[in-house]
């Protein structure tokens, strides 16, 4: 589904990604771990098309299509969903209007007519129940005044509404208490299908107790330096990253 080959990217002329290679197949869950500053969040931003980052070399294809040539909204409509580490507050734009624009943006991209108001409300109510999000949240402006946990739940709600094929969770566990973490992870698991794939970016092993990965990749200095199964997370929790840093002095 997703194929990343020798991806290099810079921000403010500083090279952050220095040759990433990654293959993700439908149904798989990949965890990306690594010390601070290794390029994890940059990778998610580059895949989503954040204009602050510049790709200097390499290729990324999604279902055979050149992802890097697409605008951020087209990538989203092709099925890339980024759950933000820090979801953005948009005062003055209601959740309902925001979601309506997003759902109908995707339908327009697919050549479908916009949803009627009643079908849209039905869809919202159905997905709200699925991800255990408080009904009141969707009556407010996008993320405005939401707690850290509410913002992350809202990300999962949006994921439920948009049904992406590639789900990228950027530090979804940061700022969550245990209960919120469980609800968010449950949402991700409920929305998992044999057709979609998940990339989980995290510092900690804790999230991976809930969202169990098929592979764990260690990102260090802008490269994937190690790939293993889920037992690697436990190792890292015990031993930290120093032994990896020693192996790959740069």
């Amino acid at each position: 589904m997703l194929s990343i080959k020798d991806l290099h990217a810079t921000v403010d002329n500083k090279e952050i990604l220095r040759g990433i290679n990654l293959e993700v197949k439908p149904g798989e869950t990949h965890a990306i771990m690594g010390p601070n500053g290794s390029g994890k969040s940059t990778l998610s931003a580059v895949l989503a098309g954040n204009p602050a980052y510049t790709v200097t070399a390499g290729s990324v294809t999604l279902n055979g299509k050149d992802l890097l040539a697409m605008k951020p909204e087209d990538r989203a409509n092709e099925g890339v969903f980024l759950s933000f580490q820090y979801p953005v507050e948009i005062p003055g734009v209601s959740m309902a209007n925001f979601m309506k624009a997003a759902v109908n943006g995707k339908r327009k991209y697919q050549g479908l007519d916009p949803l009627s108001a009643s079908d849209f409300l039905k869809l919202m109510n159905e997905k709200k129940k699925l991800v255990e999000i408080d009904s009141k949240l969707t009556n407010r402006a996008v993320n405005e005044g939401f707690s850290g946990g509410e913002k992350k739940k809202n990300e999962i709600f949006q994921m439920a509404m948009l049904q992406p094929c590639l789900r990228i969770l950027d530090e979804t566990d940061s700022g969550l208490d245990i209960d919120a973490l469980r609800i968010v992870a449950n949402g991700v698991n409920k929305l998992k299908t044999p057709e979609n794939a998940t990339i989980v970016i995290t510092h900690y092993q804790r999230l991976l107790d809930y969202i169990v990965p098929d592979f764990i990749h260690i990102l260090y200095h802008g490269r994937i330096v190690m790939t293993a199964d889920k037992s690697l997370a436990l190792d890292l929790e015990k031993r930290g990253y120093d032994w990896i840093k020693e192996q790959f002095p740069d």
């Binding site: 951020p72 909204e73 979801p87 953005v88 948009i90 624009a101 997003a102 943006g105 991209y109």
Partner: peptide, 19 residues
């Protein structure tokens, strides 16, 4: 804000108008 909206599939012109 603009990037967040575009990441959800809202085209740039619509996102700018909503903002």
């Amino acid at each position: 804000q603009l990037f967040y909206m575009r990441q959800r599939g809202i085209d740039e012109a619509t996102a700018r108008r909503l903002l």
